[in-house]
Design a binder for these strands. Sequence first.
DNA 1: AGATACTGTGTAAAATTTACACCTTTAAAT
DNA 2: ATTTAAAGGTGTAAATTTTACACAGTATCT
Lengths: 233, 233
Amino acid sequence: MEVKLPTFNSVFSIDCVIFGFEAGELKILLIERNEEPFKDWLALPGYIVEQDESIDDAAERILYELTGLRDLHMQQFHTFGEVARHPQGRVITVAYYALIRINGQKELRPVTQYARKAFWHPVNELPKLAFDHSEIFETGFNKIRRRLNYQPIAFELLPEKFTLTQLQSLYEAVLNKKLDKRNFRKKMLSYGFLKELDEKQKGVSYRAAKLYKFDRRKYAKIFNNELNLDKVG
Amino acid sequence: MEVKLPTFNSVFSIDCVIFGFEAGELKILLIERNEEPFKDWLALPGYIVEQDESIDDAAERILYELTGLRDLHMQQFHTFGEVARHPQGRVITVAYYALIRINGQKELRPVTQYARKAFWHPVNELPKLAFDHSEIFETGFNKIRRRLNYQPIAFELLPEKFTLTQLQSLYEAVLNKKLDKRNFRKKMLSYGFLKELDEKQKGVSYRAAKLYKFDRRKYAKIFNNELNLDKVG
DNA sequence: AGATACTGTGTAAAATTTACACCTTTAAAT
DNA sequence: ATTTAAAGGTGTAAATTTTACACAGTATCT
């Protein structure tokens, strides 16, 4: 492939805002950088796109290399292109988000040197991050807050089987407000895409709640793969 | 500024999906290309980002150079990064949209050689466009369709003074469905951000309609600069 | 047996959305 | 002057959705 295009020393990168939900708290994935610039700072997992990979592929690869996580459903949400956002040159970065079940087993283990470690951090009280990563995080958080209302993203954060109270507290964490229990349940169940299981919560020291499952097929059928979880909050 | 980053021959570009509204029809701005590849094809206005400009600045400049239009409120909506989307090399493009009042006076005149001419084309029955521009257009159209419901973008497409029927037919054009006249008016007026003027439409051969103005201040006050024009359609 | 902690449930009032049709006004045509 | 054509402008009742609100039931632990 002959390249005739005018070029300059420029780099595409990817940054990832990965949300998880644990102990009633919303968290994101951070790394501790092991490379200049911003060595030792906390940052979003992010790195440089290769010549022969699409940005979607790059996002998956980079997240894997920096955190050991794979096969997330990542989605681009904004591109940051200020001239001076990177101290070493012109770097335009495409930001992606994903949502994931945090899971004791899944180990976070960077497979490159660029990150010393990767870990979950509550979205409240985030420290200052490297580069413009604080801004990227804010933009991504606003994005999923809005998307919660018309896409079934909540279910990607919960275990496969969950109670209605868990679902509600996730909504409360993302929207940052209290919801009414009876109204929330009525609304959620009315959609018809939650499947009630013949199973109950285990290991709690109080009355165990029923477990539910998100039924992706029914959801797609009902909403033609999108629509209007409006006014849950 | 020392560049230590790994690089490869790569290019950032911008493509613009500019919407206008005229004669009850939604249109977008196309150019006729005067350069290989895709010479003589129709395309979205788009070109390459310079080293020392932010992508937002680049979007404004490029639109101006290819069409003569300036000072639009452009907003990024998606980044396209497939490896082979450009036949001459790796080009990642950030797509922007803007909405504008089409206006007999405003002349469309490219100021570079890259475009032979620029013109408005109805969004229905678009021909095949260069590169992946048809896909970019579709993505942008879906975006504004959704945004219509929670951002005051409709008013950017209409003349400063407009009738409620014009407003309604714009909504109908974007959403591609008929709305009920009485309900539409009730809803729109209930928001309280439309200012009724002491003026009527002129030059029509039937009863002239009242003119209204979008009151940006009231809008911001009411909605804290955003929210919920939900369920107009 | 009692304490603790969360589960699970219904109803009435208020607000919003929907469906629906005809008379009025203006300019142009006759 | 009268008629015609074309769009302007208006209200109400029914249906649906949203909201506000409280307490008895059950599992576990001590």
